[in-house]
Amino acid sequence: MLNLLLSGVTQGLIWAILALGVYLSYRILDVADLTCEGCITLGASVAAMLIWKEVNPVLGVVIAFLAGCLAGIITGILQTKLKIPPILAGILTMISLYSINIHIMSLATGASGTANLSLLNFKNGTIFAPLSDLLGLNKTMTALILGIVIVVLIIAVMYWFFGTEIGSAIRATGTNEKMCRAQGINTDTTKIIGLALSNGLIATSGALLCQYQGYSDVNMGVGSIVIGLASIIIGEAIFMKAKNFAVKLSGIIVGSVLYRVVVTFVIASGMPSTDLKLMTAVIVIVALVLTSFAGKFKKKGAKTNA
């Protein structure tokens, strides 16, 4: 029971990094960026391939982050310079990444068309194994601690970044592009930077996930944006009154962990894991409908009061 809970929390923390990336595109830039689905796999594929090539796993995560940024930049260029509608731009990058991810994983095996990579023979090649020896803890506890450290670090960096001049310009771009241009902000650039960082985070999440679960699979990203959205919506529902940006971001972490814990228990109780995506979609739909109804009730209430 406790193991199940711990495992859920740990996975939730790793997925929370993805949720933060999705928050950046969906909430801050106000774009549903479907690059996410290919990008988490990109991060996983790059990290797995590099472990096969016996590259330091920390460096592997950093390279995965950069690969994710690159994917985001491509989506950004499609959107801004080539004027492709945002949703379509994301889909195009996502679908391209499917082929690219297979190429990346094929680099490791040398066999073309490699759709998954197992790290079974490379257990000591991940971040978690040597760290777990060092701390004298089991793998889940090690991952839990590492997850907390990484997530806190990312929130701190995001808090700082979105307070800077460039960060403020990116936030403003998501709200009002016309105003941004009138204030001398190049909205093409701010969008590309935002999408790069968003997808960098998503790929980082993929890289850590791959090292934690011990494999990378070309289909692991399917539905990941919905999982990210579910985490955001659950987090926002719990931290409804939050004004501070760092608290809002922490809410997403809580949302992601809660979601993953629930999923872990639901699967343990016997629901086939293939039904998971349906369940996630229903959670998001219900949450979206409830929040929009709540908004309506609030407005009505305000009118009656006035």
């Binding site: 970044f161 800077t164 001049e165 460039i166 960060g167 204030q183």
Partner: peptide
């Protein structure tokens, strides 16, 4: 900051 180069300095 209109017309200025925006940097990583604090926004306000």
């Amino acid at each position: 900051r209109r017309g200025d180069h925006r940097t990583l300095r604090w926004g306000i």
